[in-house]
Deep mutational scan, measured.
Amino acid sequence: NMTTNERRVIVPADPTLWSTDHVRQWLEWAVKEYGLPDVNILLFQNIDGKELCKMTKDDFQRLTPSYNADILLSHLHYLRE
């Protein structure tokens, strides 16, 4: 019986294949993992993996503070390698 913190996010390895639900799961995981403040996951609700991967730093900064944008982008970049 796992707690929420221990729950593994199971999403496709390639972020471009993510559904909007996968994006939400990834964001929820990242918020907990990195202790990100002020991430409004609802702002990302219509973004799927293909859109997420096209987003620039400016795009991320429209949805979340700069600090969060940096961490989310670097993790996304890591996943795409």
Rank of each mutant, 00 (worst) to 15 (best):
N5H: 08
M2R: 09
A69V: 10
E28N: 12
L76W: 03
T3F: 11
R8N: 13
I71F: 04
P37L: 12
L36K: 02
L72A: 01
W18L: 00
D48Q: 04
A69C: 05
V11Y: 15
D38T: 09
V23H: 01
R24L: 11
K54D: 12
N46C: 09
P65G: 11
A13Y: 08
R7I: 05
P12I: 00
D21G: 10
F44T: 03
W26F: 09
R7C: 07
N68Q: 14
Y67D: 15
H75A: 11
E81P: 07
D21I: 10
N40Q: 06
L36Y: 03
R62P: 03
R7G: 11
I47K: 04
W29Y: 12
V31H: 06
W18S: 01
W18D: 00
Y78G: 15
I71K: 14
I47C: 06
W26P: 00
N1M: 08
W29A: 15
D48N: 12
K57R: 11
E6P: 13
P12E: 11
L72K: 00
R80D: 15
E51V: 09
L63G: 02
D59Q: 10
R24T: 14
M55E: 00
E51C: 07
Y34Q: 04
L73K: 04
L36C: 12
K54T: 08
L17A: 10
I71D: 03
C53M: 13
D14P: 00
N46Y: 08
T20D: 05
V39A: 05
C53I: 07
P15K: 00
Y78Q: 15
P37V: 11
E81C: 09
D70R: 10
G49N: 00
S66D: 05
I71L: 07
V31N: 05
H75Q: 13
R80M: 13
Y78R: 15
Y78N: 15
N40S: 04
R7T: 12
L42G: 13
E81T: 03
I47S: 01
D21C: 08
T56K: 14
I41Q: 07
E28Y: 08
G49D: 01
L43P: 06
P12V: 02
A69K: 03
F60W: 12
A30E: 09
T20M: 05
L27W: 00
I47R: 02
F60R: 01
E81K: 09
I47N: 02
R7P: 13
H77S: 10
D59G: 05
P65C: 13
V31K: 14
T64I: 03
V9M: 15
T20W: 03
L76N: 01
S74R: 12
E81A: 10
K50L: 09
E6N: 12
I10G: 15
I47Q: 00
Y67G: 14
Y78I: 13
D58R: 12
E81F: 03
T3V: 08
P65F: 15
N46F: 06
L79V: 13
Q45I: 04
Y34M: 07
V31Y: 02
V23A: 01
H75K: 14
L27C: 02
C53T: 09
V39I: 12
T56P: 02
D14W: 01
V23G: 00
I10K: 15
Q45L: 04
A13C: 12
L73T: 11
K50V: 11
Q45D: 08
Y34W: 07
N40D: 14
R62T: 06
G35L: 09
Y34T: 03
K32A: 07
K32V: 10
T4K: 10
G49A: 01
V9Q: 15
G49P: 01
I71C: 13
S19P: 00
K32P: 02
V31R: 09
N40T: 05
T64K: 02
D48F: 03
D21S: 11
K50F: 13
L76V: 07
L76H: 04
T56D: 11
D21Y: 05
V23D: 01
D48I: 02
L42C: 09
G35Y: 06
T4E: 13
P37N: 14
T56W: 03
S74M: 07
M2P: 12
R80T: 04
G35V: 09
H22M: 10
P65Q: 04
G35I: 11
R8E: 14
H77E: 14
L73S: 09
N40R: 04
S66E: 13
V23T: 05
Y34G: 04
D59T: 14
N5L: 14
S19T: 08
Y67A: 12
T20I: 07
M2T: 10
V9E: 15
D14N: 08
R62L: 06
E33Y: 06
L63E: 01
V11I: 15
W26I: 00
D58M: 03
A30I: 06
L52Q: 00
P15F: 04
R7V: 09
N46T: 10
D14C: 08
G49E: 01
S74E: 11
K50D: 11
E51Y: 10
A69W: 05
V39R: 04
I41H: 08
P37D: 10
N68E: 14
W29S: 15
T4P: 09
Q25A: 13
V11N: 14
L52R: 01
E33H: 07
L36W: 04
M2G: 03
Q61V: 11
L27K: 02
L42W: 10
P15E: 01
A69E: 01
D21K: 06
I10C: 10
K32Y: 05
L52W: 01
V23P: 01
W26S: 01
D14H: 06
I71Q: 13
E81W: 03
W26R: 01
L63F: 08
Y67I: 06
L63M: 11
A13N: 14
W18K: 02
W29Q: 15
K57E: 11
N46S: 12
H22P: 00
T4V: 10
G35Q: 13
